[in-house]
Design a protein around this nucleic acid. Structure first.
Lengths: 153, 153
DNA sequence: GGTGAATAGTTTAACAGTTTAACTAATATT
DNA sequence: AATATTAGTTAAACTGTTAAACTATTCACC
């Protein structure tokens, strides 16, 4: 690839990804139910989609210290959205699950976000958006590999 | 478009964008100089690229209240990275500029981030990445319009 | 089988970022 | 001239974050 073209692509990518992230985040904020923060929403969502979720897994997934997770989980547990259950075989481990209240909250937000994303996605033609998501997923894979290499060092 | 396909695309998009954001952010964190936070980095970057930057403009661009910007700018000004200058014609307005120290810091990070993004981008072929960025920019445009409609309500 | 290392999670202190509301100072409106 | 609007700051309260020290449990292995 030509050097100049690469430089231009880099600039465009850096700029557009910042832009889209900011705006998408602010749109999602608008869809979230009842005073949940965006981080709390993502934590709840992750717990729902994970089979046996632990604090360590969350810390790994969100790339923060475990104590940051403890703080968030405490707030959500205080509000009755999350429940903690000790593993009977390994009593160090605490499994996190959503309460019914937590599930309901997530469900409402999930539907709203889906509608929002749908209203955006359908403005593209199918080939374009499919290609886009395919490349996006390749990018995710590359980033995962880079992170793993970084860990391995 | 078929309903099922749309649903699948939505799920994939929501999932992959979360994934890429988390990982990209953590990679960028690793490139930032001297204890700047990622928000501080983006603020400095924005000030550099804007002609006559004010707190109000930053608050708009980052979608937060002006008082949040004041707090960040205070910290950066205390460290001598940013300077404030009052507008002589409208003395309510304060222009924000980078000090030499601030510019140097940004430059170093900028180079590192560029190298990082370059090492990623060059793993794709030119057509694919160009198409990807084109679509990404369309998406940015759609989100901008949605935000503007929201404001207009 | 007991000792030391590793693991899961919590606590605490300190700080960054955020919102809301009240405020100051300057400019615009009428 | 009086009133409203605008730019920015301050203060209080909260969320998210790290680093370091801690508890409780399990693992390794001699």
């Amino acid at each position: 690839m030509d050097k100049k073209i690469i430089q231009e692509l880099i600039d465009r990518y850096v700029s557009v990804s910042f832009d889209v992230n900011k705006k998408a985040e602010s749109l999602i904020k608008g869809q979230i139910e009842e005073d949940l923060t965006i981080d709390q929403h993502y934590i709840i969502k992750y717990i729902q989609n994970s089979k046996e979720c632990t604090s360590s897994e969350l810390a790994e997934a969100f790339d923060v210290n475990k104590s940051a997770i403890t703080a968030i989980i405490n707030r959500l547990a205080d509000r009755g959205l999350i429940e903690r259950t000790r593993d009977e075989n390994d009593r160090r481990v605490v499994y996190l699950t959503l309460s019914d209240k937590g599930k309901q909250l997530l469900q409402k937000t999930h539907e709203k976000v889906h509608l929002l994303v749908e209203s955006i996605i359908t403005q593209f033609d199918e080939t374009e958006i499919t290609n886009f998501i395919n490349t996006y997923e390749k990018l995710a894979l590359i980033l995962t590999n880079m992170k793993m290499e970084e860990m391995g060092e």
